[in-house]
Computed example of a mutant assay.
Amino acid sequence: MAYDVEKPDEQWRAELTPGEYAVLRQAATEAPFVGEYTNTKTVGTYSCRACGAELFRSDTKFESHCGWPSFYDPKDTDAVELIPETPTSTEVRCARCGSHLGHVFEGEGYPTPTDQRYCINSISLRLEPEKS
């Protein structure tokens, strides 16, 4: 798939830290319960750390106790790309640059409006706090 933001691998490596590169460009998963935004309650917008595209709003973030930030809906349905992997696993990528963000799960019974859990790596996000 062609993305709005495309860069050679060498450029991604130069612009991202090794940890960011591993998750965003190689689909690694950061360790649970250590991410910068796992327990954050700051009001604002979460953007892709690789390209800056707005992905999620803090008002859709919820406590899932899974070890990674969880959201029940993206900011805009076109903001993310969903790639089915297995019958129970769907990869979530940034629709603007194709970077790996995490996975989405359905039907887990969380009390959210969508019954979905976008389980997203903190390292793939950047939080822009809302101006008061």
Rank of each mutant, 00 (worst) to 15 (best):
P84S: 08
D76L: 12
D4E: 15
I83M: 12
P87C: 05
F71N: 06
T29R: 02
S132Q: 14
D73I: 09
L127Q: 03
V5I: 14
S122N: 07
D9I: 12
E54K: 06
T60N: 08
E54D: 09
P111E: 02
Y21N: 07
I83F: 14
S64Y: 10
Y118S: 04
T88N: 07
C119H: 03
A14Y: 00
K7R: 12
G107R: 10
P74I: 01
V23F: 01
L101S: 03
G67T: 05
A50H: 07
A79Q: 07
F33I: 08
D76W: 10
A95M: 10
T88S: 11
T114Q: 01
K41L: 13
T40G: 00
P129K: 02
R93T: 13
A2W: 00
R13P: 04
L24Y: 06
P18G: 14
N121R: 09
V5T: 13
P87E: 02
E15K: 14
T90S: 11
E10L: 08
S99R: 11
F105K: 14
I83P: 01
C66L: 11
E108G: 08
S64T: 08
G98H: 09
I123R: 02
E54V: 03
E63C: 00
T40Y: 03
Y118W: 03
E20T: 08
S47D: 11
E85F: 06
Q26A: 11
L24E: 04
S64V: 04
A14D: 08
Q26R: 15
E63T: 06
E106L: 09
T45R: 12
E81A: 15
V23H: 02
W68M: 06
K41D: 07
C119F: 02
D76H: 07
D78H: 13
E91L: 13
E20V: 04
A95P: 06
D76N: 13
A28H: 15
E85T: 11
S122P: 05
Y118F: 13
C66F: 04
P69I: 01
G67R: 07
A2K: 08
T42H: 12
F62N: 01
F33S: 06
F62M: 00
E15F: 14
Y110L: 04
T40S: 04
H65F: 10
C66P: 08
S89H: 15
D59F: 02
K7L: 15
A95I: 11
G109S: 01
E20D: 03
P74A: 03
T17E: 05
G98V: 08
R49N: 12
R25N: 11
T77N: 15
A2F: 00
I120G: 04
A53L: 09
R96D: 14
P129Q: 10
S47R: 13
M1Y: 13
D78R: 14
T42Y: 10
K41H: 13
E6P: 02
H103L: 10
